[in-house]
């Protein structure tokens, strides 16, 4: 029996997939996040990271940052499909506009005594993490950095008593003088 993942033939051209960061300016109205999340799940796209908050309160405008992976044509489709949504004002592929500044924030809790505790403090200081909370047996660190840095930090902390992680997901912005709009001057 032939095994196929879908009802349709396999793609004939295998294109490489890339990671893209999209900045989406939307009306902050009820359901807008559900519309966007639903578009991704309904059309079979991935969301690797999603960050959203209202950025302009008076105009009720939010900025959503989504990290997704796909072939060039899938990424173009995602952009077009997002732009089709009525409350979406603009979509900018920050990966295409050049190396964008990307940061995420993570909070990690480590629990341990003795050498583990000392090693955790050393690592935190080496990464430039801030100590937000400390008890005799635990620390809560805050680290802001690229996704890779955060991943490395968490991996190392696992070895010294990591018990909990909370991450914001990626916030991103294009380099240079030009703003992408959405904020009134």
């Amino acid at each position: 029996m032939l095994q196929m993942k879908t009802h349709y033939p396999d793609a004939t051209r295998v294109e490489p997939s890339h990671r893209h960061t999209l900045a989406i300016i939307v009306d902050n109205e009820p359901g807008v996040l559900a519309r966007i999340a639903g578009l991704f799940s309904g059309r079979g796209y991935n969301i690797e990271s999603l960050t959203v908050t209202e950025t302009e309160h008076e105009a009720h405008i939010s900025r959503i940052t989504i990290v997704t992976t796909g072939t060039d044509s899938i990424i173009q489709q995602i952009k077009s499909q997002l732009e089709r949504l009525v409350p979406v004002h603009r979509v900018v592929d920050l990966t295409l506009t050049g190396e964008a500044v990307e940061r995420e924030l993570c909070l990690v809790k480590v629990v341990g005594k003795g050498d583990h505790r000392v090693e955790a403090m050393r690592l935190a200081s080496a990464f430039g993490a801030r100590t937000l909370d400390a008890t005799l047996t635990s620390f809560v660190y805050e680290l802001t950095g690229t996704t890779d840095e955060v991943e490395r930090f968490i991996k190392l902390m696992t070895a010294v008593g990591l018990v909990e992680v909370s991450r914001t997901g990626v916030a991103a912005m294009a380099r240079g003088a030009e703003g992408m709009g959405g904020l009134s001057p």
Binding site: S73, Q76, Q77, S80, Q81, E83, R84
Partner: peptide, 11 residues
């Protein structure tokens, strides 16, 4: 009229 129809399945 719909940009998402362009290059969706056929280039």
């Amino acid at each position: 009229i719909d940009p998402s129809s362009i290059n969706k399945t056929v280039k």
